[in-house]
């Protein structure tokens, strides 16, 4: 049983002077410790949805609960201090060093100096910036990727349970973005934070999310696992979204862990072994071989943890099947 850490109850948001609501009657439950990506085009309401959680935007109607508490019932600064916040423009304080940036909230919370120093160094190591090199630098002396690493470290300074990330890697070059994604996944694995991550990039959403919220015109189109979004789109919109990219290409952003089902019975003779990190494109190409009809997924201790057959990779949506066969 997992705990629900964030709950939306019929939340709507209409901005002043806007004709249509940005978010419309949305109800969602987010499980503790999960990595949720929110996918949508600009204007879909994905960022509004995110920014209502830390009350950067206030809902027009409906209620949001964080850790069981109505967020309008706690002082806003107190709410925000337990929710890390990372934005695309990063927003580091230019007149403060890296250390001062990260230590902002701990200092307000009056942690003692020794504890702050330890925390800053720990976080810098976590985001792969050697503290002795980076502690005393100013933001302008860092590259975009390094700045966002500091942004992530700063967001985690007071050890919040939740991280909200609004297209954090949107302005970062493709190569750096990819390594930041990998590191964020590693951080998530280690720290078990609940992460809500807004992106317009389907590859990023598939790669990072345990589950994906697909948004369009203020409504949740589908809230599901990456493999289901890809293979079993709930409606026309999601199906179009998935189709706009090459499905085989998209499979390469999912690892075996995300498609495997529990092991059943004895291991097949005609099976191959892959690690949990192997991408599904590779898995599929194995399954297409004549003498293999089952793939066993093993963890890094070589222990079998699940299996994948062609069944798991079947596209259930008629429409996308048609587009693939074309």
């Amino acid at each position: 049983m997992s705990n629900i850490i964030i709950q939306f109850d019929k939340v709507s948001k209409t901005f002043p002077k806007a004709s249509k609501p940005s978010v419309y009657e949305t109800s969602l439950s987010i499980e503790e410790g999960s990595f949720i990506t929110i996918l949508g085009t600009s204007g879909s309401g994905k960022t509004t949805l995110l920014k209502m959680i830390n009350r950067i935007h206030e809902p027009s109607s409906g209620k949001i609960f964080v850790q069981g508490e109505d967020i309008t019932k706690v002082p806003v600064t107190q709410l925000r201090r337990k929710i890390g916040y990372v934005i695309q423009q990063i927003g580091l304080f230019p007149h403060m060093t890296v250390k001062e940036n990260i230590a902002t909230v701990p200092r307000i919370l009056k942690w003692d100096g020794e504890k702050i120093n330890e925390r800053v160094d720990f976080l810098l190591r976590l985001v792969h910036l050697p503290p002795e090199d980076f502690r005393d630098r100013y933001p302008r002396q860092l590259s975009g990727g390094q700045q966002q690493r500091v942004g992530i470290a700063r967001a985690m300074a007071s050890d919040p349970d939740i991280l909200l990330m609004d297209e954090p890697f949107g302005a970062i070059d493709a190569i750096t973005r990819s390594s930041l994604q990998d590191e964020l996944l590693a951080i998530q694995k280690k720290m078990r934070k609940t992460i809500l991550f807004v992106t317009h990039d389907i590859e990023e959403a598939l790669k990072l999310g345990d589950k994906i919220i697909v948004m369009n015109e203020g409504k949740v189109q589908q809230f599901d696992t990456p493999i289901n979004i890809l293979m079993n789109p709930a409606n026309e919109f999601v199906s179009q979204l998935v189709k706009s990219d090459d499905v085989f290409q998209l499979l390469s952003f999912l690892n075996a862990e995300k498609a495997m089902v529990p092991l059943q019975g004895e291991m097949h003779e005609k099976s191959a072994e892959v690690s949990t990190e192997t991408n599904l494109k590779t898995v599929l190409s194995l399954l297409l071989k004549k003498d293999i009809d089952n793939v066993v997924v093993v963890d890094n201790q070589n222990k079998p943890v699940g299996q994948i057959g062609l069944d798991q990779l079947k596209i259930k949506d008629q429409d996308s099947l048609y587009s693939v066969s074309r």
Binding site: N54, I56, V76, T77, Q78, L79, R80, R81, G84, Y85, I87, Q89, I90, G91, L92, F93, P94, T104, V105, I108, G151, R154, A155, A157, L164
Partner: peptide, 15 residues
């Protein structure tokens, strides 16, 4: 002042 800096500050719970 860059609005992103203000938003980051607010978002981290500065009063």
């Amino acid at each position: 002042i860059d609005q992103a800096i203000i938003e980051a500050g607010k978002g981290m719970g500065l009063n």
